[in-house]
Write a protein that binds this DNA or RNA. Structure first.
Lengths: 111, 111
DNA sequence: CCGACCGTACGACTTTCCTCGTACGGACGT
DNA sequence: ACGTCCGTACGAGGAAAGTCGTACGGTCGG
């Protein structure tokens, strides 16, 4: 099926937050913010494809990412403009927080 | 049971985000930010007490609020300092976003 | 045209979350 | 001391989320 994205005005904060409350999806957003548009595959190694599809759907339905077919791939990108327009400063704060959080998690793992 | 709060360094972004991904809890945080320390009761009219206790636990365990007994009440307050130290700028961005979001939801309701 | 590849659709299973009713315990006022 | 109020603990029920296997449909390269 063709992906249907919510309009900018339909984006709801609670959906964005619960979407990003999942570590896998938060990691995806981190990668997209750092590296720009990317294909679906390879973003989360070791996870089955149907699980990935599920997470793309959640991110797309909550308004966090664009999903654009290109050949046999699907390209993902952050909806940075819409998120910034809707919730100014939130995305940048979230990305900074995600970085700090990832560092803390890594520190814990080695502790 | 005595409430046990995570230390500042134990606060994890994914826990904060999924805690705030629930509309009720997001509303509680909005009220606490606006009005400061408040008693548990009366924050969410029409919800049973055991449900409230559940939400306090989620917010407390994720590191978003302090919970402090005072007489026969329990006072709730935002962990603003810890959240700011851990994730600079995030809480303010979230509160601004929550306000914008609440306005949009109200607009939708009247549509 | 055919096989390989990318991603989705669907169904199933498990786990977690949300909500509530009931029972309990501490703190206050009389 | 007694009843009342505030909140928690526990258990149960239903709803939602996360994961996967399998099957399907496009798209590219030979």
């Amino acid at each position: 099926m063709i992906a249907q994205h919510p309009g900018r005005e339909q984006i709801r904060l609670e959906n964005v937050l619960s979407a990003l409350g999942n570590p896998m999806r938060l990691e995806v957003v981190r990668v997209l913010a750092a590296e720009g548009e990317r294909a679906c595959g390879g973003l989360l190694p070791g996870v089955s494809r149907s699980t990935l599809t599920h997470h793309w759907r959640v991110l797309r339905d909550s308004g966090v990412i664009w999903q654009r077919p290109s050949g046999r791939e699907n390209l993902l990108s952050l909806r940075r403009e819409d998120l910034d327009a809707r919730f100014p400063g939130l995305l940048d704060a979230l990305l900074d927080a995600a970085e700090a959080n990832a560092a803390a998690v890594a520190r814990d793992a080695n502790h």
